[in-house]
């Protein structure tokens, strides 16, 4: 059944991983939802430039 996984979500207790804005994590905790927060930062620019160069080389 295609919708099986979604129906399972509807019947389960929410377990949430929040990535990005911390306020959404705080709101989930306030509602008693099991949640953890990933403190996300953009990858450093230099790293990206380096990776692009490496990608070209490889």
């Amino acid at each position: 059944m295609k919708e099986g996984k979604t129906l399972k979500l509807f019947r389960s207790e929410l377990k949430v991983i929040n990535v990005g804005l911390e306020t959404f994590y705080e709101a989930l905790k306030e509602q008693g939802v099991a949640a953890i927060h990933v403190s996300w930062q953009p990858p450093p620019k230099l790293e990206k430039e380096l990776r692009d160069v490496l990608d070209k080389l490889i």
């Binding site: 389960s12 377990k15 949430v16 991983i17 990535v19 990005g20 099991a34 953890i36 927060h37 990933v38």
Partner: peptide, 30 residues
């Protein structure tokens, strides 16, 4: 971290390891 006892994660992988039965991700990165 906002509260000292709270564990903080710095990558999706470590978060998934800590909560292997997570059923929803809320993503708000650029």
């Amino acid at each position: 971290a906002t509260e000292e006892h709270e564990q903080r994660y710095f990558s999706v992988e470590s978060a998934l390891e800590a909560m292997p039965d997570a059923n929803l991700a809320v993503v708000s990165v650029p």
